[in-house]
Amino acid sequence: MKKIKSQEKDIAKYNTQDKPNWCPGCGNFGIWVSLKNAITELEIPAYNVVLVGDIGCSGKMPYWLPYNHFNGLHGRSIPIAEGVKLANHKLHVIVIGGDGGLLSEGLQHFIHGAKRDIDITVLLHNNQLYGLTKGQNSSTSDKNYRSGTSIAEIVETPLNPSMLAISANATFVASGFAGNTKHLTQMIKQAILHRGFSFVNAYQPCVTYNYINTYSFYSTKSYNLEDIGYNPQDKTQALIKSMEIDDGDKFPLGVLYQNTNSKSFDERFFKNNDPLINKDLQKVDISASFAIKVKSK
């Protein structure tokens, strides 16, 4: 687990001119509040936080938070975040993406990100459809969800994000719900403190288009893993537990899996803990880096 230095407490000022333009009641508000709470409670100074945004309703979130942002291309937020982190691993780097960006357009980055285990936090805003483009099916849409782009008689089963992450060797996997900000805040805090690739699947009701996965859907069907004395260290159990959502009836919330023994990519690479950003570019001496023949007979 990471230690946050206490002298990093002075929060920088920042003008966010605009306020979120999500639909009233959007699940994004709950995630927005939880993320702010998590960073504030951890006393991480704003200038050391980088939010890497994807596209869509959730992708705009970095604009409305007082932290550094790098809003990239659809689906590419994970590799961008990995680059940001490896260049300066003192930063806390958080990916803000939806099910479209992280599980369709950029699915390969999600799987390889988990495999690579660079210390970033991936916060999935899982509304189970494409919100900003008006409700088309996504890779996590409920099998009964129909939109303007679905084929009526074809039923595709949704991808299971947590199971994917665990099977790809992610070292921290948790689920939360936008309707329970107190719990979601705890999940994000634990994810940030975890050293390695941490993934939080936040169920986010889309009040405009998603007529299946509503606030009441998750309120009735979700339960807290802590309440059943669940042990997140056992990977096999975690895989089994992660598959529970596939029937569409029970949604466990909490830490599904955490490997506290492994060392992240950056811990292994930066042995002396000196970030790449500190390299003195003016003093690169290449004279011994290539063969040169000095002939003097």
Binding site: V52, F70, R76, P79, I80, G83, L86, A87, N88, Q108
Partner: peptide, 15 residues
Amino acid sequence: ISAVNMTIGASYSGV
């Protein structure tokens, strides 16, 4: 795609 996006991410951080 990942390679070039990691590259630009690192550049944003200043390396």
